[in-house]
């Protein structure tokens, strides 16, 4: 009887410990990730860590290039975007915006804002429509003329493991982003560089 009671208490304790462990395991958690330092990949597809790597490499390349004419001051660039030729809906505008931001902060390049061109014209029209005192109006004909066009193409190649008996499925994704600066006066490609990312992911085929 005494033995049975000890066993009963032991079983109860074990059950309680198991419950605590299970409850801890099931608890929802939130972790803050620092996009500037952490590298996180959940699968083989493009993510913010890739964007960070791409932006960093292109910024370094552009800051260190000696191929551009800097005699008349800092080169002035207009961005024409990065074409997305992958099979994923990737916002490539985010890449070109971040490269522009890094270059502006480094102080080596100047940029004209193509996206705001129409708004700037509307604003100038408004100022000259009689609503703004003459001394506060902008002076027309003072916009910067760009020396270079910054444009590029993001491509991908995806390969899935062929169908066969296996416990995991593997997927290989290769991304290549080409970026180039075209001299607007001469049409010459004055600078070009490429960043490549290849990644393999593995996922189980059988789960609970």
């Amino acid at each position: 009887m005494i033995l049975s009671s000890t066993w009963y208490v032991g079983a109860l304790r074990a059950a309680a410990v198991s419950l605590v462990i299970l409850a801890t395991g099931c608890a929802a958690t939130t972790r803050t990730i620092n996009p500037a330092e952490d590298t996180v990949h959940y699968d083989a597809n493009y993510d913010f860590s890739d964007k960070k790597e791409i932006v960093s490499k292109f910024t370094d390349s552009l800051l260190n290039t000696t191929a551009l004419n800097r005699e008349s001051g800092k080169p002035i660039i207009v961005t024409y975007g990065i074409a997305n030729e992958t099979s994923e809906h990737i916002n490539t505008g985010g890449i070109s915006d971040d490269i522009r931001l890094s270059l502006i902060q480094a102080g080596e390049y100047r940029f004209v804002n193509r996206a705001q061109r129409k708004n700037a014209l509307d604003e100038a029209d408004f100022q000259y429509a009689g609503f703004v005192p003459p001394e506060q109006r902008i002076i027309e004909g003072r916009q910067l003329g760009a020396n270079y066009i910054l444009a590029g193409t993001l491509r991908s190649i995806e390969k899935k493991q062929p169908k066969q008996w296996r416990l995991n499925k593997r997927e290989l994704v290769y991304y290549s982003l080409n970026l180039e600066l075209t001299n607007i006066q001469t049409g010459e490609v004055s600078w070009a560089d490429r960043v490549e990312i290849a990644r393999e992911s593995k996922q189980p085929i059988i789960g609970w």
Binding site: Q203, I205, I206, G207, W208
Partner: peptide, 17 residues
């Protein structure tokens, strides 16, 4: 449809249960 594509990727395994 984007959510449907994401769900299809999630469901791409054999559930023992």
């Amino acid at each position: 449809f984007k959510s449907a594509t994401a769900l299809l990727n999630e469901l791409d395994y054999i559930s023992v249960r």
